[in-house]
Amino acid sequence: MKFAIQVNEGPYQHQSADTAYQFTKAVLEKGHEVFRVFFYHDGVNNGTRLGIPPQDDRNITKQWTALAEEYDLDLVVCVAAAQRRGLLDENEARRAGKDADNIADKFRISGLGQLIEAGIQADRLVVFGD
């Protein structure tokens, strides 16, 4: 079965960021397909590569990147939500005249249409948030 996941909260602030990861991992381990993980609201902050969590804590962004590498996941960060919150890839940074980008490996920035498409294409869409 094809799943889509929406993540609405940022890392560390709210457990839903972890729950979304644990759920997605379980979906993949059971042999289902994940059409897309879509990060919205403060959820876009899961995609920054500049976070430095304490060494004895999990690194949520790296967990996602590793999962994406293993299963070829599509991790999409909403562009409108990301621009508001200062999450940029190289293109966005250049276009907006910013001096840096901060998106993590395997994440990509795209439009809200990707969420709707995920809702259309996937058999189930599960929202995690506050």
Partner: peptide
């Protein structure tokens, strides 16, 4: 949440659902 929900609804109108 209310504002960003509305933004989703507006984008979604392009998909004829």
């Amino acid at each position: 949440y209310a504002l960003e929900s509305l933004e989703v609804v507006l984008i979604a109108t392009a998909f004829d659902q």
